[in-house]
Design a binder for these strands. Structure first.
Lengths: 342, 342
DNA sequence: TAAATTTATGCAATCGGTTGCATTATAAGT
DNA sequence: ACTTATAATGCAACCGATTGCATAAATTTA
């Protein structure tokens, strides 16, 4: 029933030439005559020829496929990144295979292994919270498969990382709160096992130090940055003997949840407590007051990550960088504005 | 430099048996002796054997890869669906390749063609707004590649569609507004070329009819359901000689934008105008007042779509359904609540 | 016009598994 | 002990494209 596949042999036969010539003709090999090429192309079209990638890949040993592993797909930030990646990969004729780690080290290892078996040409990954080592990438790297980390990265001599300056961003956010007159700032952070959260915390500390405020560990809450966990954390904050006058959270979901709880408890934002988030997700302009946050260029990050990887694959010179740092910026909105500028 | 790949021939040689036996042994063929199997498995592990999928696929003619095409990745709803798909596909050992159409027919055709060339085993798609025909799928279908539509579907005799009852949902939303005392309800809708929007409109009409309210075409605004476009549409609504007292929008992004504009114009929600959205995205509980909306089970839809497809691929009986309708439900929140229940 | 180049094409091995059929070794039946 | 059924393994063709090397044809040069 299934109509027989057309192969280069069929085309060769139809034109009474050799399959080798057809193969070369189809990919515009310089050694093939102009008219022959045209006849091959025409016949191929006429017969409905479709290249068999397996045969090609089997010989060529590359798949034209790039793997992407992210913690979760239903996250605005990550889907933005993926969108950027897809755009670039698609434009360069690469396929994308995507997998989510769900923040689990085990799932991550598993995904890497599956992709390894699928013979991906390159891998881009934003690490799961649980991940602490790079052992599971060694197999890939040994086979010279380029690996790129983005957002949630880890140091590795052979890989490029694409990040923003999280330390500076954390610093910027905190300085802003300080400049708004905050003296006692809580920092709601993620798992400091991950660079992004460790760095944001570091920036927070630096800013405090610069304003001669002593760092107080009890003002740092390391939680899973979800809606729920933040609500719980906020309740805890509300029971502090001395309430903070500023909160810097490491993502917007968390910031929104926090503001919601504060309002529910009758605390005014920003008058009583100013709040700054991170990521600039769409909800930042839905919550009232609108959320001051760090703008994180996700789509751009995806595009750059993909471009870098593809350059590496094509062995173009630009590919051997160690770290690429994208620009972030603080977007000031009402959730932190206590002093009006005029 | 690149370490030589280990093949079944290497294993065969190491054990002085034939490659055929190794091949069968590795996939647990019944005709191979128990101890031989074990020796093969052990040696394979010891030597670091990795199956070459190309060779396998070249013979077997299936790729273990499923394609997914959606309008855009940076959409909460769609990333939720993808998440569900990924979960199921992954659990069954299928790879996923993803592409976005950006609502463009041309890009959609292109993606289908790329996937066709990648020899995907099956395809799942939520159509672009521009798409009106199914011609671009014929090539795939001719090759017996199963195709599943989800959310944005189109009638096709050989394909299963996974949807919610959009007509009923539109009806439910409108009836709710009517029950809250609304008499003049605007419907902000998408491109009626797409089933989802046509059906929601249909449900809206039915509800009106049931309450003996004459349908007024001037109260239906068909727009691109974005933040921006909705803001513009809302401004237009505000200039109507007679203001509506209810608005039913076909998605939450739009509803939120609408509420924002209404509030900015000093219109009270829900007192002056009650608003109902669609999808139940996270922003629905961030906007104030919280948004009444239709809960749309995206992740579940993804899981079911993937399961259905995989069943078809495995030729399991459950696979030959025409349409699967998931349950939706109206979630009533403050944006539409004018009469308190006690 | 013969020799030297250049251009166009073909031969045949190769990539790494898979699988129908044949063959051999082992166990069971008479 | 001898045939027959059963289990275990091997042979070899095949999937479809790629590519180094050889060959043939066309063109240029001497």
């Amino acid at each position: 029933m299934t109509k027989k596949e057309i192969t280069i042999y069929d085309i060769a036969e139809a034109l009474s030439i050799s399959p080798a010539t057809v193969s070369r003709g189809l990919k515009n090999h310089p050694g093939i005559g102009k008219d022959t090429k045209k006849r091959i192309a025409d016949t191929a079209r006429k017969m409905g020829y479709q290249q068999n990638m397996f045969a090609t890949n089997l010989r060529r040993k590359n798949t034209n496929t790039i793997g992407v592993i992210i913690p979760r797909l239903e996250s605005y930030f990550h889907s933005t990144v993926i969108s950027g990646i897809e755009k670039v990969a698609n434009a360069h004729g690469y396929n994308l295979i995507i997998s989510q780690s769900q923040e689990s080290y085990k799932k991550e290892v598993n995904s890497v292994s599956t992709m390894y078996n699928s013979r991906i040409d390159g891998l881009m990954i934003s690490l799961a919270n649980e991940t602490k080592t790079t052992d599971h990438f060694e197999e890939l790297l040994k086979k010279q498969v380029p690996l790129i980390f983005f957002d949630r990265v880890i140091e590795h001599p052979d890989c490029t990382s694409i990040v923003i300056d999280n330390k500076k961003a954390g610093y910027d956010a905190t300085i802003h709160l300080l400049e708004q007159g905050c003296k006692r700032i809580v920092h709601i952070d993620g798992n400091v096992n991950r660079n992004v959260y460790a760095d944001r915390l570091e920036g927070y500390k630096q800013a405090l130090q610069q304003h001669n405020i002593e760092f107080d560990q009890s003002l740092v809450l390391n939680i899973e940055l979800t809606d729920q966990a933040t609500a719980v954390a906020t309740q805890k904050i509300l029971t502090m003997k001395q309430l903070p006058d500023g909160i810097f959270t490491a993502n917007d979901i968390s910031a929104v949840s926090c503001i919601r709880e504060l309002k529910r408890a009758g605390v005014r934002v920003p008058e009583d407590i100013a709040v700054v988030g991170f990521n600039n997700e769409p909800i930042a302009t839905v919550i009232e007051p609108n959320l001051t946050t760090i703008n994180y260029p996700g789509k751009e990050m995806g595009e750059i990550a993909a471009t870098t990887l593809i350059n590496k694959l094509k062995k173009q010179p630009s590919g051997n960088l160690n770290t690429i740092v994208l620009r972030h910026n603080l977007i000031i909105r009402d959730s932190s504005l206590r002093k009006r500028k005029h």
